[in-house]
Design a binder for these strands. Sequence first.
DNA 1: GCTATATAGGATAAATATGATCCTATTTAT
DNA 2: ATAAATAGGATCATATTTATCCTATATAGC
Lengths: 144, 144
Amino acid sequence: MRLTRAGEYAVRCVLYLSAQEEGKIVRRRDISKTMGVPGQFLGKIAQQLSRAGFLEIIQGAKGGIRLTASPMELNLLDVVEAIAGELSLNDCIIRPESCSRNDLCSVHLVWQKARRQLRETLREATFESMLQTDSRMNTDLLVQ
Amino acid sequence: MRLTRAGEYAVRCVLYLSAQEEGKIVRRRDISKTMGVPGQFLGKIAQQLSRAGFLEIIQGAKGGIRLTASPMELNLLDVVEAIAGELSLNDCIIRPESCSRNDLCSVHLVWQKARRQLRETLREATFESMLQTDSRMNTDLLVQ
DNA sequence: GCTATATAGGATAAATATGATCCTATTTAT
DNA sequence: ATAAATAGGATCATATTTATCCTATATAGC
């Protein structure tokens, strides 16, 4: 029951972009190297984030990736769900047809509560707030 | 980021056992049929729950499975973690060596909070409480 | 227009995890 | 002894995840 590597990579990518000056275009390669994400794989992930509307991909020479969302508003939940789909923890909540015990069983009420809490906690974590609470990363890794 | 089917099966198994009179031995086959869990697979799952100390498996004729833990104390977290291992959501929390950014990055503090909430919510859900809040299941499915 | 620099995106591979079943052995009540 | 159960190793099947390859396409600069 873990975040996939793709999800983790997406978070690293957005974290990097959030640390840049607003609107700056950075090469995929730079993100890849600094954040330890395989280049081509990052390409696929960036496409998903782009479709979700959080960033823009510019082709051609001098091309790269630019964050379009505001780090003040963009949060962990947005980014994770852009990659992994709506979080659910338990099959039956999202896809009731997959478990006939859905309405019968109070177990699922617990999972539903857990899911609500998880999504809320991730939603509260904006990228700006995460950068602020960690100036070390900001300095050492992201703005070099 | 979902509970595996094995985890779901384990919960169904314990739910069934919790609805029986205390100490009653039930055949694996009965649990399997009623709760819709493949028989042999349930065998493997029961072994794990047995190793965790929550139930006892009796071999031989008239053998089967018997809950040894109290439904009042046994909770969702116990059962899920007996199957899936300690829940973590994010690799880096449990295995710091898998991500060098561990201490540097406040992202992981968020995941840590989410993990704590999740485990707490599951821990609060005892099997007794889940049975009580759903008499329908109790009547229709478990005690037949 | 040509060239170098980037990403796009389909196809496919490789690795891992998950779900399930097969088969023989072992245990126990009668 | 026999029938009824589970134990447990081996194996298979499938799905998911994590990449990478390769050709196409877009763009800046000369």
